[in-house]
Write a protein that binds this DNA or RNA. Structure first.
Length: 587
RNA sequence: GAUCCCAUAGCUCAACUGGAUAGAGCACCUGCCUUCUAAGCAGGGGGUUGCAGGUUCGAGUCCUGCUGGGAUCGCCA
C-alpha cells in the first residue's frame, strides 16, 4: 500500500497538474505548525516563483480543487501561500486499520533484493578495539539493518586490517627482545593462553608502534618484516596466523556484546592472491604505471581544483598498501564468488579517509573494476573528541578500551535496575539480560543520534545516561506498551477506529515512518531513525499520560487506543531494530 | 601554501527540497505517584543561528568576504 503522505502528495500533485504544474510541487509533509494544521504543502510558493505567478492566487485555485476531497477535513491557505491540511479522521482511521495488517509498515521496497556490501568495523588484528571502533561498528551495522529493512540483500564485511605495517612493528618487537616464543608457542585452543597473549598484545603494540614512529631505523625494519609477511616467509607467517586467530576471538566478544553482526569475516590478506594478476592486468591496459620505483594508478583529472595523488599499488620496496588491498577487495566483491554481485558498496570509515576513497573510487571506475552502474559510497563519520573538544584521550592519555566502555555501561544499568526496586522479583539471569540490553541501548543511541558526518564529543556520562533523550527512554516506552498489551488481552479492533484529538496527534507520528526510512537510506544516516524513534516515543508518553487505555469505559475508544498502542510498538521496535537495539519484555 | 569540513540556548545536539513562531535532551525553576511502569508527564525561564555583506516574497540552510576551530594534501591505515 502507498504511504499516507504519498497518497496525500499524489492528491495534491493532481491539483497542481490541473494547473499545468509539475507534480513534484505536490510534495506534502507533516506540518511544522501542529497548532495550525496536520500537514502542509509548500509547493505553491516554489511553483509560483518558478513560473512567475502570484502564489496566493495559485494557492486559492488549488484549495478550490482540494476542498472537495474526502481525505481532508479542511484545506486552508496561510501566509504567502502555504497549503494547510487537516486530515479527515475517517480517512486516517481507515489507513491505520489497513496499516496494522501490512508486513513492512508500508515502507517502500527500494532494494528489490539487490545485493549490497557494507564495509565497516575495520578493526586491526593485534590491536585492542577502542572506543573509536564504536562508531564504525554500530553505524555500519545500523546501515546494514536499514538496507535489509528497505529490501536489500545487505551483507556486512568486517574487513580487518590484517596485512599492514603495524604487524611488522609488532613482530620486530618480539624479535628484538628475543621473545618470539611468547607468540609462537601459544596454544590457541587454550583459553588461558589466549587471554595471556591478548593482554601481551594490548601492551606491546602501542609501545612497538611508538618506538617505530620515533626511530626511522625501526620503521625500516618493520616495513621489511611486513614485506616478508606478505611474501609468506616464516616465522612471520605463523606469527601472523596466531595473532589473527586470537584477535578475532577478541573482536567477536566485543561485536557480540554490541549485537553487531557481520556476514563476511574478510581481511586485507584475503585478497593477497588477487593482487599480482590484478596489477599485471592493469599494467597491461596502461592504467597502472611505474612512478619513482612505485607502481601507481594516476587518478588526476584536468578539471580538478586540487591535488589528487595517484593510488599506490606497490610501494618502492614492493610492499602493497591499503589502496591495493581495497582495490583488490573490490575485484573480489564483484567476482560473484562469495555472494551475489552487489549494486552498491558502502564504506563506513572515518571521514578523514575521504581522499583515499576518492582515489580508490576514481581508480575503480577508471579501470572498470567498478562498472558505471555500481554505486560506491564513502559513508564517512566524524572524529570523536573529548569534552575538551580535542581528539579523545583518557585521563592517562591513552585510548579507552571498547570492552571497558561496554562493561561500564552495563554495570550502570544494573545499578539503576537495583535502585528502581521493581526488578527484585526477577531472576538473576533476567536482570543480567535486561541490564545488558539497557546498557547497550544507551551506548548505541548516544552515538547513533549524532549526525554521521559531524565530529562529536565523546562523553562517557552522557553515553551511559538513562534519562531524557536516550536509548533506555525508548526501551522504557516500548516496555510500557508491552506491559499494557499483556494486561489488555485480546484486542478487538472496532469496525471503524474512534480517533479523538490525542489519537490523531499520536497517529500523525506513526504515518511519517515510510518517508523517514527512505530519507535515512538516501543519505545513509541512522540519526534520522533515532530522531523518529524518539519523537514517536515522546508522543506515546504524552498519550499515555493523557488517555486512560485499559480503564477507558467507551469500548470503541478503548479498542482504538489499544490498536494505536500496538502500532506504536510495531513502529518503535522496527526503528530500534534498525538501530540494532534489542527491547526487553520488561524493565 | 592549497583543498575540504565545522561554528545554532550555559553544555551536548536536531532542523527533510530555501518556508510560517529555530526544536530536543542535560542543567535550573514550578507542579504531578491510593488509577495502565515517575528510567515518566505537564508547565516555565534561557537564541542577533561566529561576524559583515549579497540573492530571494522568504535564509540556520544558497553566494562573497572575514574571524575562530579541525581535517587532508604519494609510498601508515
Amino acid at each position: 500500500m502507498t504511504s499516507l503522505l504519498q497518497q496525500i502528495s499524489d492528491i495534491v500533485a493532481a491539483a497542481f497538474t490541473a494547473e499545468g504544474i509539475d507534480t513534484a510541487y505536490g510534495h506534502t509533509q507533516l506540518s511544522d505548525r501542529p497548532d495550525l494544521a496536520d500537514m502542509q504543502c509548500n509547493g505553491a510558493l516554489a511553483a509560483a516563483k518558478k513560473l512567475g505567478r502570484n502564489p496566493r492566487t495559485l494557492a486559492e485555485k488549488l484549495v478550490t480543487q482540494l476542498q472537495a476531497n474526502s481525505a481532508f477535513a479542511s484545506v486552508t491557505i496561510a501566509g504567502p501561500g502555504f497549503l494547510n491540511f487537516k486530515i479527515s479522521p475517517a480517512f486516517l482511521a481507515s489507513y491505520l486499520a489497513s496499516l496494522a495488517s501490512t508486513q513492512n509498515l508500508n515502507v517502500e521496497n527500494v532494494g528489490k533484493s539487490e545485493c549490497a556490501v557494507l564495509d565497516y568495523g575495520g578493526p586491526n588484528i593485534a590491536k585492542p578495539m577502542h572506543v573509536g571502533h564504536l562508531r564504525a561498528s554500530i553505524i555500519g551495522d545500523s546501515l546494514r539493518r536499514l538496507m535489509i529493512y528497505a529490501g536489500f540483500n545487505a551483507l556486512g564485511d568486517v574487513h580487518m586490517g590484517d596485512w599492514g605495517t603495524h604487524l611488522g612493528m609488532l613482530f620486530m618487537d618480539y624479535a628484538r627482545n628475543g621473545e618470539e616464543k611468547l607468540l609462537l608457542d601459544v596454544d590457541t585452543n587454550n583459553e588461558e593462553a589466549v587471554i595471556k597473549l591478548f593482554n601481551d598484545l594490548s601492551e606491546r603494540y602501542p609501545k612497538a608502534s611508538a618506538a617505530a614512529k620515533a626511530d626511522p631505523k625501526l620503521m625500516e625494519e618493520a616495513q621489511a618484516a611486513t614485506l616478508k609477511l606478505q611474501n609468506g616467509e616464516e616465522p612471520f607467517r605463523t606469527m601472523w596466523e596466531i595473532v589473527k586467530k586470537v584477535s578475532i576471538l577478541g573482536m567477536k566478544k566485543n561485536f557480540d556484546a554490541l549485537n553487531v553482526h557481520f556476514d563476511l569475516w574478510k581481511g586485507e590478506a584475503d585478497v593477497n592472491d588477487i593482487i599480482p594478476p590484478m596489477v599485471k592486468d592493469l599494467q597491461g591496459k596502461g592504467y597502472a604505471v611505474d612512478d619513482a620505483g612505485a607502481v601507481v594508478i594516476p587518478v588526476k583529472r584536468n578539471d580538478d581544483n586540487k591535488e589528487y595523488p595517484p593510488l599506490i599499488l606497490y610501494k618502492r620496496d614492493g610492499a602493497v598498501m591499503y589502496g591495493t588491498t581495497d582495490l583488490a577487495t573490490l575485484v573480489d566483491r564483484m567476482s560473484g564468488n562469495d555472494h551475489p554481485v552487489p549494486s552498491r558498496v558502502v564504506y563506513v570509515v572515518d571521514q578523514r579517509q575521504a581522499l583515499h576513497f576518492e582515489q580508490l573510487f576514481r581508480a575503480a571506475y577508471l579501470t572498470s573494476i567498478a562498472p558505471a552502474n555500481l554505486e560506491l559510497t564513502h559513508a564517512g563519520f566524524g572524529t570523536m573528541n573529548g569534552t575538551d573538544g580535542k581528539p579523545f584521550k583518557t585521563r592517562a592519555g591513552g585510548v579507552m578500551n571498547l570492552a571497558d566502555l561496554i562493561g561500564m555501561s552495563i554495570e550502570k544499568a544494573k545499578e539503576r535496575l537495583a535502585e528502581a526496586k521493581i526488578a527484585t522479583d526477577f531472576s538473576a539471569t533476567e536482570i543480567e539480560e535486561i541490564a545488558r540490553k539497557v546498557g547497550i541501548a544507551a551506548l548505541k543511541f548516544a552515538d547513533l543520534q549524532n549526525t554521521r558526518t559531524a565530529d562529536y564529543v565523546f562523553d562517557i556520562d552522557r553515553m551511559t545516561r538513562f534519562e531524557g533523550k536516550t536509548g533506555p527512554y525508548l526501551l522504557y516506552q516500548a516496555v510500557r506498551i508491552k506491559s499494557l498489551l499483556r494486561k489488555a488481552g485480546d484486542i478487538k479492533p472496532p469496525a471503524a477506529l474512534t480517533l479523538d484529538e490525542e489519537g490523531i496527534i499520536l497517529a500523525l507520528q506513526l504515518i511519517a515512518w515510510p518517508e523517514t526510512v527512505k530519507n535515512a537510506l538516501r543519505t545513509y544516516t541512522p540519526h534520522v531513525i533515532c530522531d523518529y524513534a524518539y519523537k514517536l516515543a515522546q508522543a506515546f508518553a504524552r498519550f499515555y499520560g493523557a488517555c486512560p487505555i485499559i480503564s477507558e469505559e467507551n469500548e470503541s475508544l478503548k479498542q482504538t487506543r489499544l490498536v494505536l498502542c500496538q502500532l506504536v510498538l510495531q513502529h518503535l521496535e522496527a526503528a530500534l531494530a534498525i538501530l540494532g537495539i534489542e527491547t526487553p519484555e520488561r524493565m
